Simulated assay, not measured.
Amino acid sequence: MSRLTGGDPSLLRRINSTVVLRSLCADTTTALTLTELGRATGLSRPTVEGVVEGLIEAGLVAEAPDDPADARISRRGRPARRFRFRSEAGHLLGIELGPHRVAAVLADLTGRLVGSTSRQVDEGASADLRLERARATVADLLRRTDIARDSLRAVGVGTPGIVEADGTVRLGTALPGWTGLALGERLRRSFRCPVLVENDANAGVLAEHWKGAARGVDDVVMVLAGLSPGAGSLIGGRLHRGFGGAAGEIGALHLLGREATPERLLSTTDEPLHPLDEAAVARVFARARGGDEQAGRAMDRFLARLVHDVAALVLALDPELLVVGGWAAGLDGVLDPLRAELERYCLRPPRVALSLLGDTAVATGALRLALDHVHAELFTVESVDAAHTPDPTQRPPALP
């Protein structure tokens, strides 16, 4: 590694470009003059002017039209030029690959939603068929929003399973053919930009922290409640994935000496439910609410198991907030018993709230992954060799 010095021109350009972009993005509703940018960044006017011209050439900044209602515009002489961040210079995509559907959301470089769509998929679909359905869903969304595919700067993906850093699903029992699938590699063939793959519960907690029930809360656990629940956690505002990406897999706790699987706990017959049969679970809950004693006992067993699983995480992490999402969150009778039981078993029970994003949480969290990736490229100065530090005026290199 070569030695960095204060006079390194590439590093200085990187720093200057970063601070100017940060200032322009601090309030995307207001365009700034060169003088205002100089005041905000501490850079000289000639430096700011040079940086802005470079960012204009790169397509990240544009000169804003004069606004007659703007009091800053002088009535005499030529008005000062004002500049804005071009949020439309690129787009971000978030994808959910779930057991029953594929969903996609599209946004500009500030995270402002441009469009969304979803398609149903059979729970027994093969990996190839599910990926083909995802590609068709994305193609439909891009066509309807009139966004070119090469405008995408990053793609985030949320999916069930333990996901490694390169996007390989190390273990994924919810979807056929998912264990061992090189999901990131397969999807990168369809996009000329970085593709980031994350566990669905991890994506969900990012979404709730960004736009949902956990806004302003930095220590939070989100549970995707179902027959095999999973959880995503933020500690100090940062996603906790664990060493191998398996943090929060509380659905495996029944393996630790708990004799009955979740599918048997909710069964009212001698046959276990199918792990992905949400309609059958809903029928059990409905019968329990109607006074059916056998269904009521099944529902009590399910809630007891959910409390057991969630309490383990609450005791370990001591979150301020527990957000309950997933399909079971929509079934009456889950939230209040969960809250009451956590108060019994936890030393300091957290606040408990339902997800505000519902079935859009995973795709929204995947979008947040893409947004964070691009913003890190545009707005972060890495303390590494300048020759290896990405320039925000350059499009991220295409992955193979």
Score class of each variant (00 low, 15 high):
G167E: 08
D318V: 00
N16R: 15
V381M: 01
A148M: 11
L321R: 02
I15H: 15
F243M: 00
G184L: 08
V310T: 12
A363C: 03
A280M: 05
P349C: 03
L357S: 02
P176N: 12
L97W: 06
A127S: 14
V105H: 07
P160A: 12
A203L: 08
L106H: 11
A139N: 13
L399N: 12
T380V: 11
I147F: 09
I162D: 04
Q120W: 13
E278Q: 14
D270A: 15
L183N: 08
P392K: 08
L367N: 04
R368E: 12
G111R: 10
P68E: 12
S118L: 12
G204D: 06
C25M: 14
L315P: 00
T137G: 09
G232Y: 03
L187N: 06
N199L: 06
L34E: 14
G184P: 04
G325R: 02
G180Y: 11
D66S: 08
L32W: 13
T117I: 12
E132G: 13
G358C: 06
R143C: 07
N202I: 00
E63P: 00
A182T: 03
D150L: 00
V19Y: 10
H100D: 15
A312R: 05
N16T: 12
F285M: 14
A26R: 15
G54W: 00
P229L: 09
G242Y: 03
A89I: 07
F85H: 06
A370Q: 04
E278V: 13
V155C: 11
V121G: 09
A366W: 06
S10Y: 10
E377F: 00
H388S: 10
R186N: 02
L256R: 08
V220Y: 04
V138S: 10
S74Y: 00
L399S: 14
N202S: 11
G330K: 05
G333D: 04
G111P: 05
G248E: 04
G180K: 09
P397A: 13
A201P: 05
R188M: 10
A182H: 10
K211H: 14
C193F: 07
L12F: 05
S190L: 11
T393V: 07
A154V: 06
T30M: 13
M1G: 15
Q120I: 01
G42A: 13
V281T: 11
L12H: 12
A154Q: 05
L131M: 11
D277C: 08
L43S: 03
W210T: 01
D270R: 13
S267H: 05
L92F: 08
T47Y: 04
A136H: 14
V138L: 13
L131F: 07
A363H: 03
T268S: 07
T41H: 10
G236E: 13
G90C: 07
Y345S: 07
P275T: 07
R119C: 10
S44N: 09
L141H: 07
